[in-house]
Design a protein around this nucleic acid. Structure first.
Lengths: 327, 327
DNA sequence: AACCCAGATGTGAACGCTCACACTACCGAT
DNA sequence: ATCGGTAGTGTGAGCGTTCACATCTGGGTT
């Protein structure tokens, strides 16, 4: 920086001002400094800046190491969105969503003096890890406890579950079975609630809940049970991969979809359009989730205060060919 | 740090020594310092350390913003592996794999004084962006040009393509059609080469190449063509999602898999076991790719020199039910 | 007893920036 | 003629570490 200053015939401070786009710099000075920067190929040292300001241009993200579609898609979208705002995303990957590893990951980020934190905390325990945090660090919680007070971005799971169930009910099915995700996930809870509400509103019987994890394998196992039960005509699966497993189990036992049984999924993974049959599903907008998170976070960074903002992104039902009226 | 030093009754330098596990510190002093650290809840400022040492504990990753399974899985595994080595992964997400955005991303990382760089560069243009780089920065290229000299980690695509094709040939098929990924991807090129080699070795006819992108949608389009061609009895799809699209197209035209047509995929996405029928596929070990990358990178960081190391991870064929002998 | 050496510790500078403040020049208003 | 204000610029300190070097101590050698 000194070299640049010397070449431009100004002080280091003026160079700093040009770099930070400080208003009070004469136009020709600015030009001269920029020229010197270009000539020397100078690039500012962000570590030094981070040291003195106490903040970096880095957003710390805590996410579970998983290839689950939702979290992975959110993370990718977040990285993309951050890049275009001049931020870098630093990922601390946790093996499990227990409190301890999440806390460690957060502390590690704090050591690096990140400008803000995005925590993907889809279960209660991970969500609780956010409670002890000093409140001078910008923080957005994604997919976290819908009840929490701090800034939160989430897909409207309840609405999605409601829409899926309603769609099946509207097709004429007397009731809808639900294969849910793990019960400690807020996502699962929301989808279950939506399912229940639709059923209740319609005065339909509420069948027992079939809880699974998010995998196609568990969908398959539950599908084998469902396939034997002649009274089930409509199933709402908590995600597309579960739906795929169910589809396969049904196919194996010769139960035809949608003729005998209708199915709706959740997530709209790009492949679901090519399942057999093409899956009617609920599409959350992960790009919108990422954009909203960044938006909230940047606002906090700017003002230096928590706002308690809350963005709930409504998902959309996309209808394909896995639903038909009951026979 | 000064506070800790004061409390422990030592100098700041001794605290620093304890922090960096310098050998020449008396045992009881070390204990006293640790106690002081714990009592004060002191956490070192990484930005300050990065400033003075010129290196951070951060690994810069450049990856395309995509939800493609391979890159996403590699990235996740990398973040996980880095975390357990005490490193953080900083992701710079590029929208396209053109040279310019990749170079920008790399420079941005360099500004942050990352300890090393991992670039996922599956096409030639991205790979070229690595050429102008100063050679004092540790660098590992993942999925890059197999011909390049610098440290490289990649799945043995050629072997995978060979194994898939050979498997179909061994089942008795006269030849094997190939639906490939985009031709500018090294992954595609390797799989194509393996496919050709297996065909050539067996003295089989080499059918025209069907090039697609990686999506199920493009697999479906090509599948519609394949379904009409009575002479095709065996297809090797460059990834599982393509295979899914093909499966669906075939199903629509009433062509049964594997009775009439056999199919092998690539990637072993977790869902492929539940496709109809369960897909025989080639499984690359993304965890191994990530581990090898980190290994190579850490070695460079330690020695401060490029080694020109090269790790080629052999994939494994996993046989399920999408292959049978021709009728 | 004098010496040496290695282990343990302390001292001050430096890393590359930004911040707070001081200074200069020039303007218009009194 | 004096004053205050403002745009433009410079000066020095300080952020929290590590590095290079200096100093101190105690045990083993001669």
């Amino acid at each position: 920086m000194m070299d640049v200053a010397r070449l431009a015939g100004v002080s280091h401070q003026t160079v700093s001002r040009v770099l930070n786009e400080h208003p009070n710099v004469a136009e020709r000075t600015r030009l001269r400094v920029r020229a010197a920067i270009a000539e020397l190929g100078y690039r500012p040292n962000r570590a030094a800046r981070a040291l003195v300001t106490g903040k970096s241009q880095v957003i710390g993200v805590v996410a579970q190491n998983s290839t689950l579609y939702g979290p992975a898609a959110t993370l990718a979208a977040l990285a993309q969105a951050a890049s275009s705002s001049g931020f870098t995303v630093s990922v601390e990957s946790v093996r499990t969503l227990e409190r301890r590893p999440v806390t460690d990951a957060i502390n590690h980020h704090l050591d690096q003096r990140v400008a803000g934190l995005v925590v993907i905390a889809p279960v209660a325990e991970a969500s609780e890890a956010l409670d002890g945090l000093p409140d001078d660090i910008p923080l957005v919680c994604v997919d976290g406890d819908p009840e929490r007070e701090t800034d939160l971005v989430t897909v409207d799971q309840e609405l999605g579950g409601y829409a899926a169930t309603k769609h099946l009910l509207d097709a004429g099915h007397p009731t809808v079975w639900h294969v849910s995700g793990p019960e400690d996930w807020f996502d699962s809870q929301g989808r279950i609630a939506g399912w229940r509400r639709a059923l209740t509103e319609a005065g339909a019987e509420i069948p027992p809940l079939m809880a699974a994890d998010w995998s196609a394998a568990s969908g398959y196992r539950i599908g084998q049970v469902l396939a034997r039960m002649t009274e089930v005509s409509a199933v709402f699966a908590a995600n597309d991969h579960l739906a795929l497993g169910i589809l396969r189990a049904l196919h194996e036992r010769g139960r035809r979809v949608p003729d005998e049984i209708s199915i709706v999924g959740f997530d709209d993974v790009p492949e679901s359009e090519f399942y057999i049959p093409p899956l009617t599903t609920v599409r959350p907008d992960f790009d919108a989730v990422a954009a909203a998170s960044l938006d909230l976070l940047l606002a906090q960074i700017e003002t230096g205060r928590r706002h308690g903002g809350r963005r709930v992104i409504p998902p959309a039902l996309v209808t394909r060919h896995s639903v038909s009226p009951p026979k």
